[in-house]
Write a protein that binds this DNA or RNA. Structure first.
Lengths: 229, 229
DNA sequence: CGGAACGTTGAGTTCGGTCAATGCATGTGG
DNA sequence: CCACATGCATTGACCGAACTCAACGTTCCG
């Protein structure tokens, strides 16, 4: 079985430093699948048969309860998702759907667990990944419990601006309705929050955000590396 | 160095199946400390010098931002806390204070990381622990984003009742103000939520909860193993 | 061209927080 | 043992944040 077609994922952090044998073992039954936009590829509650790795496109992780839905996270290339369920052989806690046309590698959970048992380097990588996801999730909870929706938006904008190169203008990476759900509010409330942030130097035109005076926004948002990286 | 005095922690899940050498290495510089109630033993933002294990008493994990404080979790014996920070050599994301008089083992982070590198069994245990904490944190986020405060309280009561033996009456394990903070609301709002749950068969007298009709409460709370275990 | 989905705005409501007053329990020092 | 202070829980009145519902304009596709 040629591992050539999996060369793109050889370099992700999760597989860094693992033996060639281990990589081959992981890929031997793995396959790449192309999904159209807006397709549900995982449903919460199902048992985890595969570890997924996004190669291109993007994937939204979301959750449902009693007629409510909320966006939990978005996965961008190249990274894996929902490894905790795989490792613990427990049901997925989140559903996943493609946001756009996406190529996704699916690695059978059994192979992941095998290699996890045999390759100490892989086990260490899994730990690093999990610890990082766990910390991100704690930060998320702090964000939700300690801040108002306006503050969450402000901090999200600062983070996004930084990631896109710290320029005055940058694009939102989400549809606004999804951003609202991710930030834990309704689309209507997001609209109003954007309006309210005008007094702190934020203007939005479609997907483009103009941030006149980051210093002013920072003063309002009070970002901290203990929540916002 | 006698490991006898650490016998209590030899049996926790995190150390299950690890070699005697590894255990000795972990305990060689570890020490047990007695804390009075209400003492802050960890402050968020500090670097993680120790892995902590609660032997007796209980520890509250909490976080602060901009004059707000919120309870994130409570740790009961015998278990460790904040292992993610230790493994990643990053600052604590939460503070910790004793809720009552508590005995706590402190294991130097350097030793934890050494053993983690050398003992594959320990590494696996760390993974299991982290995956479990991560999943708990995801559930927490779903609980916060998908439910109202009344629903969170109702589900908390059902969970607590189950853990205390499924009897009609059981004690709250928290002070009410801490429970409120843990559930993401104010003490005043918790009081009102308790009143509101009377119509679903819940009555509170001090620390004792009487649940006349669990079925009725379940109907309202709609618990699910994807959030509530 | 027409329909669907998205984003925005307004009006009204609900949920949850703030502030203040009170009662109760606990603990401390005289 | 009492007097007092302190802190927690509850209640009421009020306020503010966020949600719901509805209407409307825009954009994007079929």
């Amino acid at each position: 079985m040629p591992t050539a077609k999996f060369s793109e994922i050889r370099d992700i952090e999760l597989f860094e430093g693992i033996s060639e044998d281990s990589f081959v073992a992981l890929m031997k039954a793995a396959y790449i699948q192309n999904f159209p936009p807006n397709v549900e590829i995982i449903t919460e509650g199902e048992t985890s048969d595969f570890l997924h790795v996004v190669l291109t496109g993007s994937v939204e992780l979301f959750a449902n309860w009693s007629n409510n839905e909320t966006t939990m996270a978005t996965v961008w290339p190249v990274s894996s998702f929902i490894i905790a369920a795989t490792i613990r052989s427990e049901p997925y806690l989140m559903s996943a759907r493609t946001q756009e046309k996406s190529r996704i590698v699916m690695v059978p959970s059994a192979d992941v667990k095998d290699v996890f048992e045999k390759d100490a380097e892989f086990a260490k990588n899994v730990v690093t990944e999990l610890a990082s996801c766990y910390r991100a999730s704690i930060k998320n909870a702090k964000n939700l419990k300690l801040r108002t929706s306006k503050e969450r938006l402000a901090n999200y904008l600062l983070k996004t601006q930084k990631k896109s190169g710290a320029g005055q203008s940058f694009p939102l990476k989400y549809e606004k309705r999804r951003l609202a759900s991710y930030l834990g509010m309704t689309p209507e409330n997001l609209s109003r929050a954007f309006s309210a942030l005008r007094e702190h130097g934020v203007n939005v035109d479609g997907q483009i955000v103009h941030m006149e005076n980051p210093g002013k926004l920072i003063e309002f948002a009070k970002p901290t590396h203990l929540i916002d990286e």
